[in-house]
């Protein structure tokens, strides 16, 4: 764990990847989902919402409705006071959730409740390291796995810090989904991919969430480059806001991630006191439905 000295085995696992024999079996949900997408010949839709945004009840309603609305994989943000890689939309959404009392414990409870009604849709928790570190890594992994979490995306844990959470997660059978970015060059890519599991999340711009969008040809070129290095499915995110754009990206990659557009929809359906209006959850799910229809209309193997 993080307080002990870095051992030679740790270093090897960081550089070359943790050996298969030391990885525990994962839930299999992420693999099963991408296999199904392949059979259906389409790209997937990954949706991001912040846990507890704008309040626990509305957030739980949105989460419960996502599979039906067409989300193939669900990312749940673990709100943090200082989200340094996020743009204004997700910052505001984290603050709304924190103000209304979200905690990591409650986020895990949300996943647990969701799992009682849905055993198939993969759930990936996304956030920053400090709340997890504060919770305690072994306890977090144990409770996340028990709740039915399939993977983790932790923005401020690059491969250089793999011994913190990534390697313990793989040993516990929880996927660790790494971000690759336009600044991750060919020299660095193998180290980034060595301990990535589940899928690769390609951040299509050098920048923060929900701001500008990448050019189609840049995304296509980036996906080709990633495919030369990995057989894992590739999801592309940052700056994808419309059904049309999601469809294009999903057909070139294996999935498109939409986040800021969804939390913006939450923000647009609050009353003057910041409370959810009655149609808040439905508005978010309606947008997910439109995005899903776009993705389902896409033909696999296209260019972005």
């Amino acid at each position: 764990m993080n307080s002990g000295p870095v051992t030679a085995a740790d270093l090897r696992a960081k550089r070359e990847g943790l050996p298969e024999s030391e990885r525990a079996a994962d839930s299999g949900r992420i693999r099963a989902r991408f296999d199904r997408l392949k059979r259906e010949g389409r790209g997937g839709l990954v949706t991001f919402i912040s846990a507890g945004d704008p309040d626990a009840e509305t957030s739980a309603r949105i989460l419960a409705g996502l599979p039906q609305a067409g989300a193939d994989i669900i990312e749940i943000g673990m709100p943090f006071t200082d989200p340094m890689a996020d743009g204004p939309a997700i910052q505001a959404s984290s603050q709304r959730a924190l103000k209304n009392g979200i905690t990591l414990k409650k986020t895990l409870a949300m996943v647990e409740a969701f799992r009682r009604q849905d055993q198939e849709t993969p759930i990936v928790l996304m956030g920053y390291y400090n709340p997890i570190y504060s919770f305690g890594v072994p306890r977090f992994l144990e409770e996340a796995k028990r709740a039915g979490v399939d993977g983790l995306i932790v923005v401020d844990l690059p491969p250089e810090e793999d011994e913190e959470l990534c390697i313990p997660a793989l040993k516990a059978g929880v996927n660790f989904i790494r971000l690759a970015t336009p600044t991750t060059d060919d020299k660095r890519l193998p180290a980034v991919l060595a301990n990535t599991s589940g899928f690769v999340y390609y951040v299509s711009i050098a920048g923060i969430t929900g701001t500008r969008s990448a050019r189609d040809q840049d995304i296509t070129a980036a996906i080709e480059r990633l495919r030369r290095h990995t057989a894992l499915p590739i999801a592309v995110g940052f700056g994808i806001k419309t059904a049309e754009h999601a469809a294009k990206v999903a057909s070139a990659a294996d999935a498109a991630v939409v986040g800021s557009a969804l939390v913006d929809t939450v923000a647009a359906h609050l009353d003057s006191d910041g409370r959810a209006k009655p149609d808040c959850a439905d508005a978010v799910l309606k947008l997910v439905g439109e995005l899903a229809a776009g993705v389902r209309g896409s033909v696999k193997g296209g260019t972005a």
Binding site: D156, E160, E161, T181, V203
Partner: peptide, 20 residues
């Protein structure tokens, strides 16, 4: 070499910044 003073320090940044 990893930027650690005991358990403190390190490089907890987004991948985009890491090469820089």
């Amino acid at each position: 070499e990893f930027g650690h003073f005991g358990i403190y320090g390190g490089r907890f940044v987004a991948e985009t910044l890491m090469p820089l």
